[in-house]
Amino acid sequence: MAATIITNIKLLVNTRTENKLLRGAELADLPVIPNAYLIIENGIIAEYGEMKNLPWADEKKDTIIDAAGQMVLPTWVDSHTHIVFAASREEEFVDKLKGLSYAEIAARGGGILNSAQKLSEASEAELLKSALGRIHEIMQLGTGAVEIKSGYGLDVPNELKMLRVIKQLKAISPIPVKATFLGAHTYPQRYKDNHEDYLDCLIDDMLPAIAAEGLADYIDVFCETGFFSPRDT
């Protein structure tokens, strides 16, 4: 079988025979192999070890990457993003530079509500194209898996639109994608004075629709003073 073999790796980083979730002091334990090789078959890590133990390679058949002086790490895992969005918000960035606070911008209908307004005007195809562009951008920066949250929809059709975009990304993205439903990101304008009704909408309308289409892996709540309380959560 044709393989890709990375040779002469100065340091192969985070080599683990077993998975382990690292707590406290364990976080500083990063296993490495100096002067290593790594063999890839069918897109999967097939074997690795010290260079002196490198098995015979067929240079005609196999792809060899000589990594002399270079290190090899697992790609970054980005477990918290909101990369399905319709527009950047550098105008608010400038407002903040001029002295407005996050809360003041939110009170003016900026912030998340600004993203919600722009998202409601964007098509599923437009959102898919821009989010896929961001996935390719972060891949170039070394990210090899990404979690994406909804939360700029804030009503049934637009939350479903966001989650359907994420579902399409799962199918076409070269890197694994996980979807998190964040309907409780902020209160939409029309529920500004009636928070209970929005919570009812989340629970009675959005969640069953999301579950029916299998659109989410996780659920998130923006649990902050002035947003959603621990009790709401």
Binding site: L12, L38, A67, V72, P74, K178
Partner: peptide
């Protein structure tokens, strides 16, 4: 890497140099 993989339920696919995981790698 590894703790991030756990934080999105992908510890069996990514997050470390482990036989059987995806060959998603950074070469510096």
């Amino acid at each position: 890497t590894i703790n991030g993989a756990y934080a999105m339920g992908l510890e069996d696919e990514v997050g470390s140099i482990t036989v059987g995981k995806k060959a998603n790698l950074i070469i510096t």
